[in-house]
Design a protein around this nucleic acid. Structure first.
Length: 362
DNA sequence: AAGACGGGGTC
DNA sequence: GACCCAGTCTT
């Protein structure tokens, strides 16, 4: 289409939102915002952007942080590998690259957590390099306007859309073009109920003209969701201490903290709790003990029906069991008041919001 | 090429 | 319940 970029940029200049990261070309700010915005809506990411900029004003400040503190600030945003990669890349830039971000797509893409999209975004916005971004918005806009039904999550699809975007990009102003096409997808050419009636491209939009708006873009395969049953053990000593652990293994919530966990094949009933938990090893900081060796005084299940916590690939059935200990366990525990210092999964944060340890003390 | 990885919003 | 979000990394 002739003049696509001209019309698009015209639309953008009249309709764009004023967003904090649109007031700068500073690579640190742009990089930070792009990482936060991966698979994340602007409204959800915005508060995190503000708290990160305030807490870590530049890449050196972020590099000097402890990873646990970065994770704590990231708590609730999800996809926590982003936070770990963010910190690793900050250290790389601060200590190996003299505090200066790479200024080309090719070099940017070598950074941890920076893929094709993010490298293109930074290179274009900060350094005026004409490399096209292809995110979910771009897939939608281009598949509709050009009537392309190649699955967007396929290798041919990725190549085809990248090439088309690269062909369309305004070589003189790639920064504005890239942001314009994403903004257009986010606010006009939405997944559901797009504003086709006053769309500047409706006359030539293949999907609109052929009534295929709802069918594009095409995505292959559906993800299958696995059911898991989590039983969290909230230990409480007479001194008001509890036990937490950091999730080190691969899988969900890596790097975050949670309570000792008993995972079962199905929903665990109170009658079967003892037999199921007895052989469980409770991992302390320095040593570990079997559950059955602990001085358990009382077990109180916090809810009859499990809490359902949905992730993209898993459906979690979560129960919290309070385990009152009559004396110190021999394990190294923490005062419950300090729980707030640790990054925890949303489901635990939510539980803690209306749980009071004092109810179980004297 | 296919899965894994979070949490929240929309319809 | 299904789909999507300013995607990336691992298998």
């Amino acid at each position: 289409m002739l003049n696509f970029s001209k019309k698009l940029i015209h639309w953008y200049l009249q309709n764009k939102r004023e967003l904090p990261w649109r007031q700068t070309q500073d690579p640190y700010s742009i990089w930070l915002s792009e990482i936060i915005l991966q698979q994340t809506r602007v409204e959800q990411g915005m508060p995190y952007y503000f708290s990160f900029v305030e807490t870590y004003p530049d890449v050196k400040a972020l590099a000097a942080a402890r990873e646990d503190d970065v994770l704590k600030l990231w708590q609730g945003l999800g996809y926590y590998s982003r936070a770990r990669n963010l910190h690793a890349t900050a250290k790389k830039v601060a200590y190996d690259l003299n505090g200066v971000f790479p200024d080309t797509y090719k070099e940017l893409k070598k950074l941890k957590g920076v893929g094709d999209y993010t490298a293109s975004a930074i290179a274009s916005i900060c350094f005026n390099e004409a490399t096209a971004v292809v995110d979910g918005n771009v897939y939608r806009v281009l598949s509709r306007i050009y009537g392309i039904d190649t699955p967007i999550n396929s290798t041919p699809g990725a190549k085809e859309f990248k090439a088309l975007a690269q062909e369309l990009i305004d070589k003189k102003d790639p920064a504005t073009f890239n942001q314009a096409i994403m903004e257009f997808g986010a606010t006009q050419c939405k997944p559901k109920n797009p504003y086709c009636l006053h769309c500047p491209f409706s006359e030539s939009c293949v999907a609109f003209q052929q009534g295929r708006i709802a069918d594009l873009p095409v995505k292959k395969g559906k993800i299958k969701v696995r059911d898991r049953f989590f039983n969290y053990l909230i230990f409480i000593t007479p001194k008001g201490e509890t036990l937490i652990q950091q999730r080190k293994e691969k899988g969900i919530w890596r790097g975050l903290f949670d309570f000792p966990l008993l995972e079962t094949e199905k929903d665990l009933q109170k009658e079967h709790f003892r037999e199921s938990v007895n052989k469980l090893m409770i991992l302390g900081k320095d040593k570990s003990v079997k559950f059955e060796a602990l001085p358990v005084e009382e077990i109180i299940l916090q809810q009859r029906a499990p809490i359902i916590h949905k992730l993209s690939h898993q459906k979690l059935h979560v129960k919290f069991w309070v385990i009152k200990l009559s004396e110190a366990s021999g394990l190294q525990m923490i005062a419950y008041e300090r729980l707030g210092d640790f990054a925890v999964p949303r489901v635990i944060d939510r539980f803690l919001e209306d749980f009071d340890f004092k109810d179980f003390l004297e």
